[in-house]
Design a protein around this nucleic acid. Structure first.
Lengths: 206, 206
DNA sequence: AATCATACATACCGGTTGGTATGTTGCAAG
DNA sequence: CTTGCAACATACCAACCGGTATGTATGATT
């Protein structure tokens, strides 16, 4: 038999692990990795160090797990999925940007993109983090590039567009927009910046 | 009389202040503000806490001074000056980007843009920092926007270009390129990304 | 029923942090 | 000559950090 009737209390290791990951994600998103306090994360979850260091060997492992098991899936759902099979990547991305801009109070303006935040903070400082983050980033660029290629064969995208370089630029510009808007704390600037990125996308049209 | 013959030893308050600022800039550039160690900064300068806390009330004040007295002038010399009076902002920015791309080993790829780094780290966390950084950023955008406006009247830039929004996007995209290249640690990607930004600039031509 | 590993909680530790209080030196004014 | 303040140096501190060692409850195994 299995513990079907358990609420949360007794023993549910994967659940507590998940709680740790989510809390860590929140603290890291708010304060960055280095400034994220283990104690605070445990405070948020109601757990203790015993639980944490049972599931993760150290703080860095927790951070890397957050990248792989929280940030990556979120990004995949938000940004990868809509482009996964499209043959009109430009239209799809325009819709994506429009959807982003339409959010009434984007948390991304308040706290920024979790991936970008971590990249800016940790990439120059820790090679392990850099590789992990770069993996997610390159996957993202890869998804966009593949979509652009499909758009080329489908006739939506100009033939002389360098898919890989353009994709890299699109993602970079998007992250740049988010980052600068975070600094400005202005939703208006955020939307305006996204609109300009949309204008660039238009120039790729055939 | 004034102490004309002093080398460095006895008393030269503004010089030690400057040394503190430069060392702090370096540590902040390498590790971020929160992770920058006061002790390490003093180690770099050969000074002590007595000196530091004589010139600055606390760590935050030091950081803000770095923004105003180190980062801002550097940025002004590198990015503002070349656009100060141009009537062909597009050509000027293309030249600027080309110059950036031509650097054999841009430190900006290794450690990123000091302004961007600080914005990403500190803006969501400390309002004082946000305002200070945003001041520099908005000045930058203002310089670009003004140049674009002059380009419009001079006939280089299309009339339907929204100077302010476009300037915001240009700077954002540039910072995005730098940030992503920092993560990739690839000078090639950096140059390629700058080239794409150049293509966007071309679309603004009349 | 006894055993044993998993899944935590609790208490503790060395190291580092930013910050302060006190001391010392030197130049310049009175 | 001495007084006084600016410009530092030195010693010290409480708070917090990540990490560990130990203890304990629980469920599964034999």
């Amino acid at each position: 038999m299995y513990d079907s009737g358990m609420t949360t209390s007794t023993k549910a290791p994967d659940l507590t692990r998940q709680k740790l990951l989510e809390a860590a994600f929140g603290e890291i998103h708010r304060n960055g990795f280095q400034a994220a306090s283990i104690t605070q994360i445990l405070c948020d979850t109601g757990l203790t160090k015993g639980a944490l260091y049972h599931h993760f060997p150290d703080k860095k492992a927790l951070g890397l797990a957050v990248v792989d098991e929280v940030i990556r899936p979120r990004l995949a759902a938000l940004m990868f999925a809509p482009l996964a099979d499209t043959r009109q990547p430009l239209a799809a991305m325009q819709a994506l940007l429009a959807g982003k801009a339409a959010e009434d109070d984007p948390m991304v303006v308040t706290l920024g993109c979790p991936l970008n935040n971590l990249m800016q903070e940790m990439s120059p400082v820790d090679e392990g983090f850099r590789l992990q983050l770069n993996g997610v980033f390159e996957d993202w660029v890869g998804v966009v590039a593949a979509a652009l290629e499909r758009g080329k064969t489908a006739g939506e995208v100009r033939r002389d567009v360098e898919a890989e370089a353009t994709a890299f630029f699109i993602v970079s510009a998007l992250e740049g927009c988010v980052g600068m808007s975070k600094n400005t704390q202005s939703v208006t600037a955020y939307r305006s910046c996204l609109a300009q990125l949309g204008r660039f996308l238009d120039t790729l049209k055939r």
